[in-house]
């Protein structure tokens, strides 16, 4: 059913379509970043596609790939009841790097096509640091402005905190106790993208026998 949409897009955009996959009934189309907006608009306006409803936009980080981020847009047609996933691959924006057309780092916003995309593009910016051209209000959505970095990138250590309030210290404030370390609860299968926060290393806790009294300071 949804395969119709894929065929329509292929016929319309031909060479701009990088690949299409169908897995467990989910159709997905990968397009070049330059064509991303046109394809999204086509999906919305073409009567055979009629993707009237915006479902979700998110990203996946693959640090090992050259084009590091995969932007994933899920769409749904309320009348035709088909779904499709539109994807595009983006490069990481380096600080001070001049824009390079062969390494696209941004795409145009689709919040002009679906009003619902507005906040979710903000979230992608917040969590992954991908920018959207022409977005009306690209602020952080979930985190605070003082936060540095983008936590859902694989190289952001999960337990690296950036407190807004300085932590109290005193005898009634306990830090982490043995045996709970930074990688507590992590199974063998976990991928070690990010080194765990250094301040919670085994050594910093010291020997449990002659441990200094917990001073309550937390990693910053």
């Amino acid at each position: 059913m949804s395969a119709v949409v894929v065929e329509r897009v292929k016929a319309q955009f031909g060479s701009k379509v990088v690949e299409t996959t169908s897995f467990r009934g989910d159709e997905s189309i990968v397009v070049e970043p330059a064509a991303y907006y046109q394809v999204a608009k086509f999906l919305r306006d073409d009567p055979a596609c009629d993707m009237s409803m915006f479902i979700d936009i998110t990203a996946v980080d693959y640090p090992s790939r050259d084009a590091r981020f995969e932007l994933v847009l899920n769409l749904y047609s309320l009348h035709k009841a088909h779904r499709v996933r539109l994807k595009t691959r983006l490069f990481e924006a380096e600080q001070g790097e001049v824009a390079d057309a062969t390494r696209p780092t941004t795409v145009p916003t689709v919040s002009t096509l679906w009003a619902g995309a507005n906040w979710f593009e903000r979230e992608v910016w917040d969590m992954f640091g991908l920018k959207f051209e022409g977005h009306p209000d690209l602020r952080r959505l979930l985190l605070y402005e003082e936060f540095e970095g983008h936590p859902l990138r694989k190289d952001y250590s999960a337990d690296k905190t950036q407190p807004l309030m300085p932590y109290r210290s005193g005898p009634d404030v306990l830090g982490k106790q043995r045996p709970f370390l930074g990688d507590e609860g992590m199974p063998f299968g976990r991928k070690d993208w990010a080194p765990r926060d250094a301040s919670w290393s085994d050594d910093s806790l010291g020997d449990p026998e002659d441990a200094p009294p917990p001073d309550g300071t937390a990693p910053v």
């Binding site: 979930l142 985190l143 936590p151 952001y156 999960a158 337990d159 690296k160 905190t161 950036q162 407190p163 309030m165 932590y167 109290r168 009634d172 404030v173 306990l174 982490k176 507590e184 609860g185 309550g216 937390a218």
Partner: peptide
């Protein structure tokens, strides 16, 4: 709790006495 991550304070006693 089990939210041992970048977003959550590790207990309110880091902020106010309990």
């Amino acid at each position: 709790g089990f939210y041992d991550n970048y977003a959550t304070t590790p207990g309110i006693d880091k902020i106010i006495p309990v």
